[in-house]
Computed example of a mutant assay.
Amino acid sequence: MKAFEIGPVSVTFEDRIAVVTLRRGDRLNALSVEAIESLREVAFRLREDFETTAVVLTGDPVFSAGADLSDPGHKARRAAPLLQKRELLRLAPTTCAAWEALDQLTIVAIEGFCLGGALALAVSCDFRIAGRGSHVRLPEIPLGWNLNWNATPRILNLVGPSRAKQLIIFGERVYAEEAHRWGVIDEVAEDGEALACAMRWARKAAALPPLGVRMSKRTITEQVTTLNRLTCHMDNDQYILASMTEDHQEAIAAFFEKRPPNFKGA
């Protein structure tokens, strides 16, 4: 398969390794609707690629600040009628599912930050390498939403219930070293070296028999994720409910006004 681009996502190939790079041309690399659609289409195309054993997913210059809430596509989804909104909100979860479904080993290289939906995407992959100064964060609960994108069971699988509650509910920054101790990150690299480190992991995989790698990965993934859909099938509906609350509106207002929010459970 030759190198190709879909929207802001480019894919190159080297010795049984595919390198997927999100590059929106700014310092946030946020996930617009176009970016999410492009990442999903890339995963679909890689699913049919039998020449690669490993896929490295990265961002340039940082991994991603998560969903781009200023994107017109996201705004249109939030303003859509309820029935239509439920369907439109399937885009991100199906993108994460497409990445999880790849039989190649998937390795995420994180520089800078990996927030919200970007972390949901990262935990859909097999391994995560992070630069020492980078951090992960899930800001959804403090902003009055619930964690969406079917990410909760994947995070629970990685870190256990106590750490999952800390990461999801408190919404605080967790820097690379601590995220490594928790099990979110698999290796900490020096800043600027996450991609090089991820490539070393990819080359180890690429040197192995491809069939054995794919079959073993699929067996492990299926066993650990068997109940995931059962436990997160209401994600979208919970997100819609939370976005209609007064607390959500208060959270957004407080964020822009740079003040502590006053939540009332309404």
Rank of each mutant, 00 (worst) to 15 (best):
R47D: 11
E140C: 02
F50T: 13
I169N: 13
P153A: 00
V174F: 12
I129G: 01
A251C: 14
D237L: 12
T106M: 06
D49L: 04
E111G: 12
A198G: 10
A251F: 03
D15L: 03
T58Y: 01
T53V: 14
N236S: 12
L119M: 06
V188M: 06
T225Y: 11
R86H: 12
F263C: 00
R40V: 07
W201Y: 14
N146P: 00
L22F: 09
L102G: 06
A76S: 12
T94W: 05
T219W: 10
W149M: 14
T21A: 07
F63Y: 08
I240Y: 04
R229I: 15
P209S: 01
A54P: 08
R214F: 02
I185R: 04
F255T: 15
E172D: 14
I240R: 02
I129T: 08
C114M: 00
T152I: 13
D191G: 11
K258Y: 06
A30R: 10
Q249T: 10
E250C: 00
R78L: 11
C125H: 03
L102V: 09
T245S: 14
R214C: 10
I129D: 05
F256H: 13
F256Y: 12
I185C: 08
E41M: 09
R128I: 15
L46S: 01
R24K: 10
A54R: 07
E41N: 11
R259S: 05
R40E: 15
P142A: 03
E100V: 07
G183Q: 05
A202I: 07
L102M: 11
V123N: 01
E177I: 08
D26T: 02
A130P: 06
E14W: 05
L88F: 07
T58E: 01
I107F: 08
A253N: 08
E51L: 11
G7A: 07
T94M: 12
L22Y: 09
G117C: 01
I168Q: 02
A35T: 02
V136P: 01
R173N: 12
R218P: 02
V174D: 00
G192M: 07
A196Y: 04
L211V: 13
G160P: 01
F263W: 03
N29H: 03
Q84G: 12
N236V: 15
E111S: 14
A202M: 05
R90Y: 03
K75W: 03
G133D: 14
P8H: 06
G7R: 06
F44I: 11
E5S: 15
